[in-house]
Amino acid sequence: MACFMVPAAEAVITTIAAKSMESKERACESHASGNENADLEMNARVPFSKKVKWLNNLLWGGSALLAFEHVWHGEIIPSFPFLSAASDPAAAAEMLHEMGTVGVTMAALITIVWGGMVAVSSVIEKRALSAQTDK
């Protein structure tokens, strides 16, 4: 009914987080430039803000396409309150239940998959870093 709104809300939070992380990383980068070891590590590592952007893309992309599905099924309407279920208390309760179950599971699954991607990329980065230091 409005399950996509939970991942969309998470996407808003992670987008803001990614922006603030990016500015912090830029500040750190300019601070550490010139240090050979720090440069080597920075080249081998993918910035965490970039990794958070992967999560953003998954969440925003999925939410956009699911929102279209809700328009298709008449669950999103072009007039206030924009969700057809919101105008009826019984339907609204059902909608909130769906958001709490399906919506939260969607957001959790995407975050878990992203966590797996981050873990795999960390292993690859560590291997690349140790290969560079061995040389």
Binding site: C3, N57, G61, G62, L65, L66, T105, M106, I110
Partner: peptide, 17 residues
């Protein structure tokens, strides 16, 4: 890729329910 995988994961949850 991001868009389609994101939507696929979300619809997978829908399908499981």
């Amino acid at each position: 890729c991001w868009m389609y995988w994101g939507a696929s994961l979300m619809w997978l949850v829908d399908a499981i329910y």
